[in-house]
């Protein structure tokens, strides 16, 4: 990560990418959680740049994540909404933004978070993925009715 030099030109903060995805307007400090939600770890092949706590006119501080050579699917994008509903997604092809989209909070998320209830059937060896309904109160386990009200990222599988 480079040090912030020019708040007006945040795009230069990290190298421009040829093809891939830029996730902008992430709530300040949440970039690493966004990366976690997308399942990107040291062992996956994407090249990744992260800028955190970049001064932003609208948001005060924001984070940016750039992913080379990977276009995110709708399902992946919408997961980001769980922690940063204001994030915007720019799909880059040949150095140009060719698609810009917001994130939408999904109704249902599967296989992303683990149910915190140790007695829940979804925490056994059954051939199922975890299944949570997204409600105003939080994530509602479709199996045992447990509700994850806060700190969703700590439950990511």
């Amino acid at each position: 990560m480079k040090k912030q030099e020019d708040p007006e030109n945040e795009g230069l903060l990290v190298r421009r990418i040829n093809n891939g995805t830029v996730i902008d307007h992430i709530v300040g400090g949440e970039a690493l959680n966004v990366v976690k939600i997308l399942g990107i770890t040291g062992t996956t092949t994407e090249s990744l740049s992260i800028a955190t706590n970049v001064p932003s006119g609208q948001m005060g501080k924001k984070d940016i994540v750039k992913l080379s050579n990977r276009e995110l699917s709708k399902e992946e994008v919408d997961r980001i909404a769980l922690i940063s509903p204001g994030a915007t997604i720019n799909i880059i092809r040949n150095y140009k933004v060719c698609e810009k989209k917001g994130v939408e909070i999904p109704d249902l998320i599967e296989g992303l978070v683990r149910c915190p209830n140790p007695g829940c059937i979804s925490n056994t060896n059954e051939p199922i993925r975890s299944r949570f309904l997204v409600t105003p109160k939080g994530l509602h386990c479709a199996y045992c009715d447990w509700v994850i009200a806060r700190d969703i990222t700590s439950h990511i599988i």
Partner: peptide
């Protein structure tokens, strides 16, 4: 079944109707 949510899982895989007679503390 002792696990919560077991009846919902059963309903998902069953080809016939399922009635829950108690799943865990659920």
């Amino acid at each position: 079944h002792p696990k919560e949510g077991a009846a919902r899982l059963a309903a998902h895989f069953a080809g016939v109707p399922v009635i829950n007679a108690g799943d865990g503390s659920g």
